[in-house]
């Protein structure tokens, strides 16, 4: 398990190798998701970057809670969540989620669940820079909430 917030970039290779070392032969699958900074805002405007802000302490707990919920729903051997903060440029990596499980079904579902919850429940704020003079604070979209809601209705 590894849940981290950092300004620095991360390396999928390094995280992958460390995860494989931890799980040994206990898991039959790893699903990986990485989120990147898009060069265009939803409205189509070009952005020069993103600024990500968090609330030290509370953000970590919100991420831990999401991973705990995922582990309560699926048999996951290990989960890695790395979320970057600070100034990012188009093409930069923002977030990495790795989920290891005995079988792919749980790994796919667990990874998607963690991402959907990160979008709506994790304590981060994102600002598009380069749109207007002061930039634009991003809001979760209807699609983000629908995706998060679908997990609440699913099997509960």
């Amino acid at each position: 398990m590894s849940i981290r917030i950092q300004e620095d970039d991360f390396s999928l290779d390094r995280e992958w190798d460390a995860l494989r070392k931890r799980i040994g032969g206990s898991a039959g699958s790893i699903v990986a998701f990485a989120g990147l900074v898009r060069e265009r805002a939803r409205a189509g405007e070009e952005v020069s970057g993103l600024f990500l802000e968090h609330y030290p302490g509370m953000t970590e707990s919100s991420m831990e809670r999401i991973v705990e919920q995922a582990r309560g729903r699926w048999p996951l051997q290990d989960v890695v969540v790395i979320h970057r903060v600070g100034d990012l440029k188009p093409g930069d990596q923002i977030v990495l989620v790795l989920v290891a499980s005995a079988h792919r079904g749980a790994a796919f579902a667990g990874c998607e669940f963690v991402m959907d919850m990160l979008k709506t429940k994790a304590v981060f704020w994102k600002k598009e820079v380069g749109t207007g003079s002061k930039g634009t604070w991003i809001r979760s979209t209807g699609d983000d909430f629908e995706r998060a809601k679908h997990w609440r209705n699913d099997g509960e």
């Binding site: 989120g35 609330y55 979320h83 979008k119 994790a122 981060f124 604070w137």
Partner: peptide
């Protein structure tokens, strides 16, 4: 006490 606008992670 923290005053927080709607969150947007991921």
């Amino acid at each position: 006490i923290a005053f927080m606008p709607p969150v947007t992670g991921g």
